[in-house]
């Protein structure tokens, strides 16, 4: 009974806070994924450009942000960014600490990392397009911009869906690390609830279950999207996904 009360929505229950925290995790991850999509697309096109400088820059990006611990990037952006802002503030006469907003800096950090993984997904998806189809588009008189819009983008998205599902899952778990900045997402809220009630097992297991619900729901959504995108695939390839 006492357990139910702790998880309930009453004045002594953590239910409402956990629900909000779950939504916060979802929101920060979705924002990170969107930021990562922009970085990923830019980095992927740099790597595919054939220009030596751009290719090298792209390779540096993916190597660094896939090779360095996520937590370090979050510390770097949140604490590094905050201390930079604070010193600017001090220089302008403001006394005291200026913190970056934890949502924005967390989403940016996870987004930058997600971008490194998304770049590889988009690059692979582009390379999966049959070159003959691009030639056919040129041969019919499509301009470069139209080829990108009508032939390349739809197919990159189609081929990228399975990879993006993995990246989303990774980012969802990475978002737990944003708890170090104090953002009241699922990890942080479970931790606070566990600490203040001393019910560690209860709240960490409930937190874990909520993560599982998020990942399995999103898995289902990605599977459905994949099936939809695969309508045009030969029957033999459909079973594989």
């Amino acid at each position: 009974m006492a357990t139910l009360e702790l998880l309930g929505f009453g004045s002594t229950g953590w239910g409402a806070l956990l629900l909000v925290a779950t939504l916060m995790t979802l929101a920060v991850t979705a924002t990170a994924l969107a930021i990562g999509a922009v970085f990923g697309a830019i980095v992927a096109s740099a790597k595919l450009s054939g220009n030596l400088i751009l290719v090298t820059l792209g390779n540096i990006y993916t190597t660094v942000f896939r090779g360095v611990p996520e937590l370090l990037i979050i510390y770097l952006i949140y604490f590094g960014g905050s201390s930079a802002i604070t010193s600017i503030g001090n220089w302008m006469g403001y006394e005291g600490f200026l913190g970056l907003p934890s949502f924005a800096s967390g989403a940016l950090a996870v987004g930058i990392i997600s971008g490194a993984y998304q770049a590889e997904v988009y690059r692979g998806a582009y390379l999966a397009i049959a070159k003959g189809e691009l030639e056919a588009a040129s041969a019919i008189g499509m301009s470069r911009a139209m080829r990108v819009r009508r032939i390349i983008m739809p197919q990159v998205l189609r081929f990228a869906i399975p990879g993006l599902g993995n990246v989303w899952q990774l980012s969802l778990k990475d978002s737990a690390l944003i708890s170090v900045t104090g953002l009241a997402e699922l990890m942080r809220t479970s931790q606070v609830a566990a600490g203040s009630t001393r019910q560690y097992f209860l709240f960490f297991i409930v937190g874990g279950l909520l993560y599982l619900i998020l990942t399995s729901l999103s898995d289902r959504i990605f599977n459905r999207a994949e099936r939809r995108a695969n309508r045009s695939m030969p029957a033999s390839a459909m079973g594989q996904a």
């Binding site: 056919a136 040129s138 041969a139 019919i140 008189g141 032939i151």
Partner: peptide, 30 residues
Amino acid sequence: RSELGMVFQSFNLWSHMTILENIIEGPMHV
């Protein structure tokens, strides 16, 4: 190019479009 029809050895139909969409793509968008 829009005045020259090209037929390739390996067909090169756009795989993400239906047959009808393949055919109307050029007239509609180009």
